[in-house]
Design a protein around this nucleic acid. Structure first.
Length: 275
DNA sequence: AGTCTTGTTCGACT
DNA sequence: CAGTCGAACAAGAC
């Protein structure tokens, strides 16, 4: 599923395809609920003729910034994908938005589960005020992480998933970060020692950095998996220590990885490394 | 055929 | 208010 590294990969791929500085000729919305905040017709009329000045990412959001000062926030949720149509390709069942560029290329937004969302806003951060800091930014320091964790009584896994402490983590990278730091996902945040917080801070950064280097995680072959633009698979699956590795040996201590449910989410951990 | 999965939001609780 | 829990959304995988 697209988490920070996968969304970053998509943004970089779209840039590599020259989306920056291209002009939108038309936007066709085939599943109306993909657009939130305004009608599909209004979205299309506001985007027609606009030049895309830049592409960026905030948490798991892709942000297109236009020459009129507006911004399009796109969330892929679980199965959203972009690809450029080949020649006269006819859109399929799950191609919900088609962005036609002035040069004739067509960018298809494909989303089997229809949870992906497009929202046009007046400032890039509008509606995203609650998002926590970017974990890979230089300004995200151990002290900031520690301060934001102070007084939080929730279990550490749901806390890391909720996007307000730190932005961009999802089920895969939370499980991986907690394993790397040797912390049990059900530990309450306010019981973590300073040393554990430091370990977790470093683990989050290292796990995410490596996943970005590997262009994200693609598990298996189903369409629910992550594919970047042009159907590119991520290479990070081999770097995973625990996620979807139930029954396999822990890479650190060889004990068997188990799967439990924490906060209604499937959770993978090493019972020996994470007490 | 039925269950599970996934990210986020929302409403009803405690 | 802080946090928890379940529902909702949708459809493919198994």
């Amino acid at each position: 599923m697209p988490e920070l590294p996968e969304v970053e990969t998509v943004v970089r791929d779209l840039r590599a395809h020259g989306l920056e500085n291209s002009v939108i000729r038309d936007v066709q919305v085939r599943w109306a609920r993909t657009v939130s905040g305004c009608s599909p017709a209004r979205l299309a009329s506001r985007l027609r003729g606009r030049k895309i000045d830049s592409l960026s990412r905030r948490g798991k959001y892709i942000i297109l910034s236009f020459d009129d000062g507006r911004h399009l926030q796109i969330h892929l949720r679980m199965t959203g994908k972009f690809r450029f149509a080949v020649r006269d390709e006819v859109p399929g069942k799950h191609d919900h938005v088609i962005i036609t560029l002035a040069d004739g290329r067509r960018l298809f937004f494909n989303d089997t589960r229809k949870f992906g969302r497009f929202r046009l806003v007046d400032s890039a951060e509008e509606g995203l005020e609650a998002l926590g800091p970017e974990p890979l930014d230089d300004s995200f320091r151990e002290n900031l992480f520690r301060r934001r964790m102070e007084g939080r009584t929730r279990m550490i896994k749901p806390l890391l998933l909720d996007q307000t402490l730190v932005a961009g983590l999802g089920n895969i990278y939370v499980d991986e970060s907690l394993w790397r730091a040797g912390i049990h996902p059900e530990r309450c945040a306010n019981t973590l020692t300073n040393i554990e917080i430091r370990c977790l801070y470093q683990a989050i950064r290292e796990v995410l950095r490596r996943a970005v280097e590997n262009c994200g995680t693609t598990l298996g072959t189903g369409q629910a998996n992550f594919y970047s633009v042009a159907g590119r698979r991520g290479r990070n699956a081999d770097a995973l220590a625990v996620f979807r590795r139930t029954g396999l040996p822990c890479p650190r201590c060889a004990h068997t990885i188990i799967r439990v449910v924490v906060g209604q989410r499937g959770t993978h951990l090493c019972p020996s490394c994470q007490k």
